[in-house]
Amino acid sequence: MANPDKPTALTLARRAVSLLARRRCEVLSDAPTATAARLHLPVCPDAASLAAQTDLLLVLGGDGTMLRVARETAGHATPILGINLGTLGFLTAASARQLPTVLDAVWAGGCQVESRSLIEARADLAAGPVAELALNDFVISRGALPRLIELEVRINGELLTRYRGDGLIVSSPTGSTAYSLAAGGAVVSPQAEVFALTPICPHTLSNRSVIVRLDARIEVRLATKRVETFLAADGHTCARLQAGEEVRIRRSRHAAHLVRLAGSSFFDTLRQKLNWSGSSV
């Protein structure tokens, strides 16, 4: 699977098919990738059906492509091997130039698979019911007008606070290095079983990111009238909220299974991607 909007991803897809063919692997593709890259392969109509028929999903793109594939293949245990063609690439295993080496490592058993929990949001809105999955985060935020919104947050039924600001990020451990980090949230190890609740530009300076258990039930109710407010899953808007409507967020029973090279670690990735002290890159 490749990001069809990136010419480099389509070129790499053709190279990947050639490398896999040399190993006498049976190669399948999703329809958008096959069409855009002009691949003459058996085609599956979507990511979910592709995951159901394969032993490994090779994803060529950036973190956005990885997030989409993780959501679309929820419910399947097929490992996802990401090759980074984006910027940071926290979710990918290697860069494009490392593709041959990574495939060699896969066949030699030099990889490991990490399970990353997905999170889910549900809401009964005037516009209809909403049920969404995310790997990184859910964001409730204002629209284009620069006006504060007020969000009442409860954890397992108990009032936490009312945030006044531009919005709120509810992130999984995987999502702690995404929007939450940019908004001042903590970096969370993927193995930590927690949510991070990070306000966006809060009006109260004492508001900071709050960490709660991953098995908690988080309820966010919009208390503001006449301000456009939206719910987004992994950066994609999925619903508009009205005053009084509530979004319920919890851990999903589904997980994404990401391939990692043996010897790599989350902390190595942090040092390299964020240019922290100690990085050899």
Rank of each mutant, 00 (worst) to 15 (best):
S49E: 03
T229S: 12
S141A: 12
E150S: 13
L88H: 06
T35H: 14
A233Y: 04
V220D: 00
G110D: 10
G244H: 02
R221N: 03
Q191R: 15
L214R: 14
A134K: 13
H236E: 15
L20A: 03
I155Y: 06
L151A: 08
I200C: 01
V259D: 03
E120P: 05
R260K: 15
T78H: 06
A134W: 08
R260W: 09
V106Q: 04
P32Y: 05
T11A: 15
M66E: 07
A105V: 01
S189E: 11
A183N: 10
A243H: 13
V113S: 12
Q242Y: 03
G157Q: 07
D234E: 06
I218G: 03
A16T: 10
L28T: 00
M1W: 02
N84P: 11
T101F: 12
H254I: 00
P100F: 04
S265G: 13
V188F: 13
N207I: 04
P32C: 02
T92P: 11
G110Y: 06
N84A: 12
N156A: 06
G61E: 04
S280G: 09
V212G: 10
I200M: 05
R221W: 01
A108E: 13
I200N: 04
G75M: 06
R164C: 01
A9Y: 02
R253D: 02
R68S: 11
N156P: 07
F266T: 02
T33F: 07
L222Q: 10
R253Q: 07
A192N: 12
C201L: 05
V281F: 08
G167T: 02
E219M: 05
F267C: 12
H254R: 14
V220W: 01
A178M: 02
T78W: 07
A186V: 00
A70S: 10
A131P: 09
R240Y: 00
A16W: 04
R226V: 00
L160K: 02
L160F: 01
K6V: 01
L151M: 10
A223Q: 14
I249C: 11
R240V: 00
V102M: 10
Q112T: 14
V102E: 01
T198V: 08
A37Y: 08
V227P: 12
A77M: 11
R142D: 05
Q98A: 12
A126D: 07
Q112S: 15
A262N: 14
D55T: 09
I140S: 05
L258N: 08
V188A: 15
S115L: 09
S95M: 13
P146A: 15
A216P: 03
L56K: 06
G89E: 06
R221Q: 11
A94M: 12
